[in-house]
Design a protein around this nucleic acid. Sequence first.
RNA 1: GCCCCGUUCGUCUAGUGGCCUAGGACACCAGCCUCUCACGUUGGUAACACGAGUUCGAGUCUCGUACGGGGCGCCA
Length: 484
Amino acid sequence: MQKPVVTRFAPSPTGTLHIGGARTALFNWLYAKHTGGRFLLRIEDTDRERSKQEHVDAILNSLRWLELDWHGEPLFQFARADRHREVARQLLAEGKAYNCYLTTADLEAMRGAIDAERALAREEKRAPRGPQTIQSPWRDRDPKEAPAGVTPAIRLRAPREGETIVEDKVAGRVVVQNTQLDDMIIVRSDGAPTYNFAVVVDDHDMGVTHVIRGADHLNNASRQTQVYLACGWDVPVWAHVPLIHGPDGAKLSKRHGAQGTDEYRAMGYLPVALRNYLVRLGWSHGNDEIMSTEQMVEWFELDGIGKSAARFDFAKLADLNGHYIRKSSPAQIKARLQEALPEMENGAVTKAELDRVGWDTLDAILPALMERAKTLKDIPAGAAFLLATRPLKLEEKAAKILDTDAKATLKSLAAEFATAATWDAPTLDGIIRAYAEQAGKKLGQIAQPLRAALTGSTVSPPVGDMMVALGCEEALARIADQAA
RNA sequence: GCCCCGUUCGUCUAGUGGCCUAGGACACCAGCCUCUCACGUUGGUAACACGAGUUCGAGUCUCGUACGGGGCGCCA
């Protein structure tokens, strides 16, 4: 029987959840769901300087927001240092690792010598001589010769001949000559286990069967393979996912606008849209673009992952987001908005305003706003006319529309509206249409001045909807403000 | 510099030797719908990096070149 699949996401809490990390987490989550396996979380907090609890919280929050649930409690890597050292001791006892008494100064000197030889070789147009990696003499030296007072680092006794092969589900078969790999340090001289070692021990202990992570770790995979082999453990299935680049093709960075998942929330993107966008970045299932989470789970396979890096395209994300906003219920959007508004630009002010007048004020116009929104930000922006106070400030174009003719139209229209039997959109629309017909004018000649008077703008939801949202009194007052 | 990886429309991608006069989506352009905007809808512009080879036949296989990315720590 096939072992049940165990995947994991292992972020370092040195910042917020990077959008690339979000995709990695999504892929791991999807694959676990797809195979009926488990998705685990491990916090790689061994960098004591940069690891912060606030970052752990931020990452966990982003994962929850994305609705990527993990199995059990997150494992903290730093807390497992004793276990890592124990495995290292075992390797030492078996002769698969050794104490290395090289000092930092020694290493610098050796690297300097290698660089110098390489430079010389280039000049003389010949191949560089001697080892091209750090080769510790302590690999073969008698430990009795150890200098007094120097605490050793522990190095893995890696094979110096042959090759190390990584069978990657995405990259394929990656072969690295062992001469390229030095004896990696697994425990530092201060007793702290190194990343490439701790990762292997943890993944093994957690029972991880599939390591799905960024392609920036592909080189690490060969080193880690050597650790697995030394320990006599099964090597997991590797899948190194190509990185996400910014729109200009360079590594996604601050300059591109947003790297943190929390920033996308603040920009008004829906988790369902972000998931759909992210899953199509580097993975495909035929020509399917829009897919439900259920479909993603059903379809997600490792061999659907592409080999090349993808550029982030905000326009496509926005399109997807608009789609999912339209598919949501007004209640869902209202809830999302309440959640995200405090994080948005000027959102706190808008939220205070809406809290004051009551969120129900939005109800009449929300569906019309959702129809037009690309991000949640567009909702408060589109509802701004509701919160505005008379007399309205007119945009230049709006002022232009309100010429003498238009003002006269508004005046006679106001009288018609005052007779409305009920104040709802169909009735009001009916009045507008009847008036246009009777006056022999196009609808636009009536609706545009109305729009200008109601909003001070030339762009808005349908006027009928807005009049209902504003209420009879306010709507008529705004029309009267602009009427001749 | 060394090692590893990649390269199909502007972008994300389909494509696993003949179904490709290369398909879809976003973006863009034009039309329709229409009270503006948006939605929807119809159509359009637009790509196999380059060069050799294998083959009856190559976007698909091989090699080279160019370009891009990643990695070279007692960081993670």
